[in-house]
């Protein structure tokens, strides 16, 4: 069995999140070093303020200021801070009930060691130097031995309120395509297209995916197909796709390689785009070092009859 293929896969996007009124007020408040909660009909104060009452589901809009000081309700000592977390040195995760609040906020506590942390300890917000209207405007909490801090008497109305955040998120994976696709890719590196035959229905799958999707059994018998094939259908792409360095217009085609029982997708080149047609006979054109054929070009053979490929569109 050939070596298992693996490659890094990063899933990354700067998500743009609109906030709605309550979250907008809370995060704008953090920018201004004011902590807001929201009042429920039964006069509980929820911090951080949520838009909908977790008990009654009623919409909540009644903002109220609470203090930037509070009490730890539970904690956990993080020996090994991880990417993206609030502090780079060991710290405590804490739930903090701020003075004036009935619920607790999750954040980090900067403390010299876990012996310095206990449930019930008093803490206060350490504000970030640069604040943009995000939960990270609270850099973390820090130990505090004073009385509840004074509130500023803020109404919750702000000039220039933050209405959205950009939440960049990156996750890293190691992708491995599995046995059948690895074998296919290994063969491709020798410019051979090798599919797999279903032991039950005898259809040849290219690329093979490890299972015959109609029979639900493993494919294993390797079958070399192509290199020539037939254009079964296509479209002419006139819109430039991001991240693709292909001049438009070009033809994106379904190609049934000779011996394969379903079509794969590829670009057609080597002829004017407006002369590509269903039934065109094509062959791959490779470029040095590429994993896949760069494109397919006409072979010059007569076109295939529709009846010979109409099941392979």
């Amino acid at each position: 069995m050939p070596e298992v293929l693996k490659a890094p896969l990063a899933v990354e996007f700067p998500f743009t999140r609109s906030l709605g009124p309550v979250q907008s007020a809370f995060l704008t408040g953090l920018r201004e070093r004011v902590v807001l909660g929201v009042k429920t009909v039964d006069s509980r104060t929820l911090v951080p303020p949520v838009e909908y009452d977790p008990v009654t589901a009623e919409e909540l809009r009644d903002l109220v200021e609470v203090a930037p000081t509070g009490t730890v309700t539970t904690w956990a000592w993080n020996h090994h801070p991880r990417r993206g977390q609030p502090l780079g040195t060991p710290f405590a995760w804490v739930l903090v009930r701020l003075d004036g609040a009935d619920t607790a906020l999750l954040h980090a506590l900067d403390a010299p060691g876990q012996d310095a942390v206990h449930t019930g300890m008093r803490v206060r917000v350490r504000w970030a130097e640069e604040r943009t209207g995000a939960i990270t405007d609270i850099a973390c909490f820090e130990p505090y031995d004073g009385e509840p801090a004074q509130r500023t008497g803020h109404t919750g109305e702000f000039e220039d309120a933050v209405t959205g955040i950009v939440a960049a998120a990156r996750l890293d994976y190691t992708y491995s395509p599995g046995r059948a696709q690895s074998a296919y890719l290994h063969a491709l590196s020798g410019r051979r297209t090798v599919g797999e035959r279903c032991p039950s229905c005898r259809k040849v799958y290219v690329p093979p995916r490890g299972a015959c999707p109609t029979c639900g059994v493993a494919t294993s018998e390797q079958v070399e197909v192509g290199p020539r094939g037939t254009v079964t259908t296509f479209c002419i792409v006139n819109i430039k796709a991001k991240n693709l360095d292909i001049e438009v217009p070009y033809v994106y085609a379904h190609i049934a390689l000779d011996g394969a029982d379903l079509a794969l997708h590829a670009r057609i080149g080597g002829m004017p785009y407006d002369q590509v047609r269903m039934g065109l006979r094509v062959e791959p054109v490779w470029t040095e070092g590429a994993r896949f054929p760069d494109h397919y070009r006409p072979t010059g053979e007569p076109d295939a009859e529709y009846d010979t490929y109409k099941e392979l569109l």
Binding site: L5, L9, Y175, P177, T232, F234, V237, I239, A253, A266
Partner: peptide, 28 residues
């Protein structure tokens, strides 16, 4: 269209997935 290693990038965008089937319908 999250990029997946070892796979050819989608060459044609969302409509490119559907357009060949439309052509097949017209032909048929």
């Amino acid at each position: 269209s999250l990029p997946i290693p070892f796979q050819q990038p989608l060459l044609a965008g969302a409509g490119g997935f559907f357009a060949p089937h439309v052509r097949a319908y017209m032909r048929r």
